[in-house]
């Protein structure tokens, strides 16, 4: 059987090289070619926001979802976007994997007609700027590029102003001073060449997370032979951790390279981290309020527990 697998990332992105593409190969090998994939990267098959609907309706059979694009259908899964929790891709991925295995986040995906196979996260967002940003007072009234409502509120919590600017325009906006700072996943920094236009990059902040979940349409998934499902799952568990570690390592290398280029790659002090976390507290409160009550609180408690181990 051949599954059509949708993906909004390009095949050159580390998430694809160390994650999606590797998983495809691992599954094809483990099943002896009984299960194979047609991979549609770079939004070829569906826009990032349409990937979930595409799987549900049979345009695709499987997809690597960016859960942030599906908060309308998967509100609880957006817990990973909250700032201040996981500190590395590995830590976040272990928490996500546990929560996808059972509990409300898995149920929410199942209710959407798709079954999660594995999930992983990007290393936490860091702040890039032309000055060192530490205590919330440094952030006062700065124009910060954010993507999505959670990050906009993160900026607001720190006294800054969240600004939405399309990805391809961010470079120019920083270069020309339209933006004072950018919240960005470090792995994506070279792709947009942002290291050319900033002088300070934080390395141990946690300005929000980003999760990917590989899903297969449930009726199709259930019709697969148990051996094949196990192979997908086993490969998934392994690849999830692998891509997380690979990202953490690659970020380490990137940071070393930037440091050599004379960029101030800095760690927040414990005081700064505490103050930032306190400032961003309101984002979590708002999230619980908006997602509505008990279930959200339950998911959050579990998430906090898992990320503080």
């Amino acid at each position: 059987e051949t599954l059509r697998l949708g993906d909004f990332q390009s095949t050159s992105h580390i998430v694809s090289v160390e994650g999606t593409t590797k998983w495809i190969a691992a599954v094809e090998e483990a099943t002896g070619g009984e299960l194979s994939f047609q991979h549609f990267p770079s939004e070829q098959a569906a826009k990032s926001k349409a990937q979930l609907d595409a799987v549900k309706s049979g345009i695709l059979d499987a997809a690597l979802l960016g859960t942030i694009y599906h908060t309308d259908a998967l509100p609880l899964n957006s817990v990973v976007g909250l700032p201040g929790y996981y500190g590395s891709a590995e830590e976040g991925t272990m928490a996500l994997q546990a929560m996808l295995a059972e509990g409300p986040m898995r149920d929410e995906l199942l209710a959407s007609g798709v079954t999660p196979v594995f999930g992983f996260v990007l290393p936490p967002y860091q702040v890039l700027a032309k000055q060192r940003l530490g205590m919330p007072s440094d952030w006062e009234a700065l124009d910060v590029r954010t993507s999505g409502a959670t990050q906009a509120m993160t900026a607001r919590g720190l006294g800054a102003v969240g600004i939405s600017i399309p990805g391809p325009e961010v470079y120019t906006a920083v270069e020309r001073g339209r933006l004072d700072a950018v919240l960005f996943p470090l792995a994506s920094v070279p792709g947009y060449k942002l290291n050319e236009v900033v002088s300070h990059i934080s390395t141990n902040g946690s300005f929000g997370g980003y999760s990917f979940v590989m899903v297969v349409r449930s009726d199709l998934y259930d019709s697969l032979a148990p051996g094949i499902r196990d192979a997908m799952k086993a490969a998934g568990d392994e690849i999830a951790l692998h891509v997380a570690k690979a990202q953490d390592e690659s970020v380490g290398e990137l940071v070393a390279g930037w440091k050599a280029d004379g960029i101030d790659t800095y760690e927040f002090t414990d005081d700064e981290l505490a103050a930032l976390r306190a400032g961003m507290e309101l984002v979590t409160e708002d999230w619980v309020g908006r997602m509505g009550g008990e279930k959200a609180q339950q998911v959050l408690d579990r998430y906090i527990e898992l990320t503080s181990q």
Partner: peptide, 17 residues
Amino acid sequence: HAFQRGEVEYGVVDWPL
């Protein structure tokens, strides 16, 4: 569908989709 399920985009406000 979006009306029936009360889908919203979480932004500055909850935008009804």
